[in-house]
Computed example of a mutant assay.
Amino acid sequence: MAVRPIRLFGDPVLRAPSAPIEAIDDGVRSLVHDLLDTVALPGRAGVAAPQIGVGLRAFSYNIDGDIGYVLNPVLTDVAGEPHLVGEGCLSVPDLWHDTARYPWARVVGMDLTGAEVVLEGEGLLAQALQHETDHLDGMLYISRLSPEERKIAMRRIRESSWF
């Protein structure tokens, strides 16, 4: 399949809630292959379908060399006290901000056969599960920043060469 270009802040697809996948067809299978190819590049922990221009509930992940995907993921559980962790986003390049995330998270979805997929964990996996499901709900991580940090982020975005 293909490594797809990442949509950047300002693209409307990033702000729209994603539609659930109703049927597994060739288009969805192709989407999964593209998500897997796109997340396999170095330095990528996750890619949500909207980030490659597709408004469907799907994301891929690449955590410590474990690469996979989930269709119709739902963040079902989080645990612990949220704490600030450094976070960036492929759709907001060159920015890195401390973002409040729970230390443990669980996502439930399905694979291409319709079988249930449960992903759960702590650390970077927990952060990625929260970050990618936010994308599917039309939210970028900068929306979770404190008002002061968001103001700084927005200024950096406006001053960036890619915006």
Results as ranks from 00 to 15, higher is better:
residue 64 D to N: 14
residue 64 D to K: 10
residue 64 D to V: 12
residue 65 G to S: 06
residue 66 D to S: 07
residue 67 I to A: 05
residue 71 L to M: 05
residue 72 N to C: 01
residue 72 N to H: 01
residue 74 V to D: 04
residue 78 V to Y: 13
residue 78 V to A: 07
residue 78 V to H: 09
residue 80 G to K: 14
residue 84 L to N: 07
residue 89 C to K: 14
residue 90 L to H: 10
residue 94 D to V: 04
residue 94 D to P: 05
residue 98 D to V: 09
residue 100 A to Q: 09
residue 100 A to R: 13
residue 105 A to Y: 05
residue 107 V to M: 10
residue 107 V to L: 11
residue 114 G to C: 00
residue 115 A to R: 15
residue 116 E to D: 12
residue 116 E to L: 04
residue 117 V to C: 00
residue 117 V to P: 08
residue 117 V to Y: 09
residue 117 V to S: 14
residue 122 E to D: 13
residue 123 G to S: 12
residue 124 L to Q: 02
residue 125 L to I: 11
residue 131 H to P: 13
residue 132 E to R: 05
residue 133 T to L: 13
residue 134 D to Y: 03
residue 135 H to L: 12
residue 137 D to A: 15
residue 137 D to V: 01
residue 138 G to F: 02
residue 139 M to S: 12
residue 141 Y to V: 06
residue 141 Y to H: 02
residue 142 I to R: 05
residue 143 S to G: 05
residue 143 S to Y: 03
residue 143 S to V: 02
residue 144 R to M: 03
residue 144 R to T: 00
residue 145 L to G: 01
residue 146 S to Y: 05
residue 147 P to W: 08
residue 149 E to V: 03
residue 150 R to G: 00
residue 152 I to R: 05
residue 153 A to M: 09
residue 155 R to H: 00
residue 155 R to P: 03
residue 157 I to D: 03
residue 157 I to E: 07
residue 157 I to Q: 01
